[in-house]
Design a protein around this nucleic acid. Structure first.
Lengths: 196, 196
DNA sequence: TCATATGATACATTAAAGTAGATCAAGCGC
DNA sequence: GCGCTTGATCTACTTTAATGTATCATATGA
């Protein structure tokens, strides 16, 4: 058995045990015989994708093919979810406020592509919320959004969007930076945002 | 075939094409028969982990089991890695002009297969727009298209299509050249074109 | 001590993945 | 037209994943 296969087997076994499932219980969920699960976990078989996904899904795991360059960041994220993924109470509170603010703006029916963009950035930023150490930027974004109601309009949205984008990128970069201390790899950039 | 399998197949195929490898070239790298790669990409088989990792590794991809909660973040990162380089403003501008021109021609309801062909070539060319260093050819194509309105007709379209085709191929070759510095492999061609 | 649940194993069978090789039509460059 | 590469498809053969069922030793608990 290859290294990859062994790691896979270990991951599955660990995930099952973490969920407190017996092989038979998992068998029932995944529709795969217990005998086969045993073989799989011991690395005795070269399983097929169908078996793998069946078991993985039963364990709330998703099969993914990630670019090598992204792999370290992905590992970090996965680990951060598994460990103690709780954001600080302060960050959670500030995010909740921001969400409320965005909801309010939505109710104003502004309907600008800039706003849709902002909402997407907000969602993506929240994926890294456990990494937030400092809520200043979030507060600043909320401040910017207040102007939408009064005078600012779309200009205020754009300012907020700009800040949200760089904040999200900073968080993502933070992940990469963590990894770089261990792996002498070039940086990666979170692009894909061209507010033009 | 399940949805997961199809997505996997599509991912592998896209990754291979992005690297500018033929199925045979990938076959050599991954140690998997070309015939089997063909089957895999068409979703005709339920592949094993060993096949999957062999091919994935040859494509600089890594197999990962990510917790469901982490999956969206992983997708965000993966996507951000994939669209790294940006086209120059000049290239973008020229492409925009060309797009407008094509839109205009479409409004003329010429309805020739040559035009459909041209549009497809245009789309395919845009996949490499980040690689454009020189916009002369694009301008030349746009010049050729002007004749469609006046006298040229289908002949002008054919001329534009021919230029578009070779321009697209040149860009694609550029990719292959980049890859060849790392992989001592034969060139790659972008097929699927029928200017008849 | 007796019952139960666990994971590992055994066995026979079936379905299919994988290999090695050849062939094919289509497209492209020359 | 000619030669080459492309991806798809076929054949024949071997290997093995997966199933279904059953058993086993070992904990754990009543």
């Amino acid at each position: 058995m290859s290294y990859e296969s062994e790691k896979l087997a270990a991951t599955l076994k660990a995930a099952r045990e973490k969920k407190g499932l017996s092989q038979r219980a998992l068998s029932a969920h995944a529709g795969v015989p217990q005998s086969h699960i045993s073989k799989i976990e011991s690395g005795a078989v070269n399983l097929t994708v169908s078996s793998l996904t069946a078991i993985a899904n039963a364990l709330d795991l998703e099969l993914a093919l990630v670019p090598r360059k992204a792999a370290p960041a992905v590992r970090t994220i996965t680990r951060s979810i598994n460990d103690v993924p709780k954001a600080t109470p302060e960050a959670r509170k500030e995010i909740a406020r921001l969400a409320k603010q965005l909801e309010h703006i939505q109710s104003l029916k502004i309907d600008s592509p800039v706003f849709e963009n902002l909402q997407r950035q907000f969602r993506e930023m929240r994926q890294f919320e456990n990494l937030i150490r400092n809520t200043d930027t979030l507060r600043s974004i909320r401040e910017a959004l207040k102007a939408v109601e009064n005078a600012g309009g779309v200009a205020a949205l754009q300012e907020a969007s700009k800040q949200m984008n760089s904040f999200r990128n900073a968080l993502a970069h933070g992940i990469a930076d963590e990894e770089r201390t261990r792996l002498p790899r070039p940086a990666y950039r979170l692009d894909g945002d061209n507010d033009e």
